[in-house]
């Protein structure tokens, strides 16, 4: 179980652990606040039935993206990936399948509602994606994990995230090494049985190696007295700028909510 280690006294901020490298204001904010704001914001946008609030939200998100100081490169590649999925919706949603009057024959008709829906989803997806990358991408990944643990996310889940992330890199390196080993023996992938068989073997070996490694990692942990507790070393300090950020975030979320549902509440 992950359990926070006893909190440090407040004056002990001179320890190097308590100072994150800080290029911009977004990176210096407490990751707990950012996680909560990102979650609430995404949830609200996802629930919006009409396009007005998501369109405003996209504006907010663009502002956040610029303010985060991450640079457009970070967003550009991810935006392509997200919108590749969204493109399929534009392809499929505007069409309606139906049965012809005589029955038996299938008709395909244009459906403007589908087009509106695809547009709405595009707005929401991009607004949420930009905000999440701007907020979470400006923290180091281990700070995010710690924030999740401090926000009382189930300990097993956090541990799973951490180990997954840690060993993803090891697996990737192992995969690349195996691919290199294949390449130096003149393996050129094509669409033939030999390729499929070799790639299947590659995946099999990766899985087996990971199993072996997990065993050794566990043994190494036992040797260091592991008895089920994962310790958290990093503690965050809530500062005034975090309160300001969360208030602004809350106000933005509230105003989007009012734009969307204010009319119905009023009546």
């Amino acid at each position: 179980m992950a359990r926070p280690s006893p909190p440090a006294p407040r004056q002990a901020t001179t320890h190097p652990l308590d100072h994150a490298p800080a290029p911009g204001l977004a990176a210096r904010l407490d990751p707990r606040g950012k996680v909560v704001v990102a979650l609430a914001y995404s949830l609200l946008l996802a629930l919006c039935p009409g396009p007005l609030a998501p369109a405003l939200g996209l504006g907010f998100s663009l502002g956040l993206a610029v303010w985060s100081g991450l640079g457009w490169r970070v967003f550009w590649r991810r935006a392509l990936a997200v919108n590749a999925f969204v493109a399929f919706l534009w392809l499929f949603l505007p069409w309606r399948l139906g049965l012809g009057p005589a029955g038996g024959q299938i008709t395909l008709s244009y459906n403007p509602q589908g087009l509106a829906l695809a547009g709405l989803i595009t707005l929401k997806a991009n607004a949420i994606f930009l905000a999440v990358v701007a907020l979470l991408g400006s923290s180091q990944i281990n700070d995010i994990f710690h924030a999740l643990a401090h926000l009382r996310l189930p300990a097993k889940l956090v541990t799973l995230f951490v180990l997954f992330y840690r060993y993803l890199h090891v697996m990737r390196r192992e995969y690349l090494r195996l691919r290199q080993a294949m390449a130096v023996r003149c393996f050129t992938p094509g669409s033939n049985l030999h390729t499929y068989r070799s790639l299947a073997q590659l995946i099999g070996v990766l899985v087996l190696r990971s199993l072996d490694r997990s065993e050794r990692v566990y043994q190494a942990m036992l040797c260091r007295g592991f008895a089920g507790t994962f310790w958290l070393l990093d503690h965050f300090h809530w500062r005034r700028r975090d309160t300001v950020f969360c208030s602004l975030g809350g106000a933005a979320i509230l105003s989007l909510g009012l734009v969307q549902w204010g009319g119905t509440l009023w009546n």
Binding site: F145, V162, Y165, R213, R216, V217, M221, T229, W231, L233
Partner: peptide, 22 residues
């Protein structure tokens, strides 16, 4: 293989793991 021994994300956490277990 040190890769088996270092399972935490940061060096400090990994080194502190044993002492905290004690």
């Amino acid at each position: 293989d040190p890769e088996d021994q270092l399972f935490s994300l940061t060096v400090a956490e990994d080194v502190a793991f044993g002492p905290l277990n004690l």
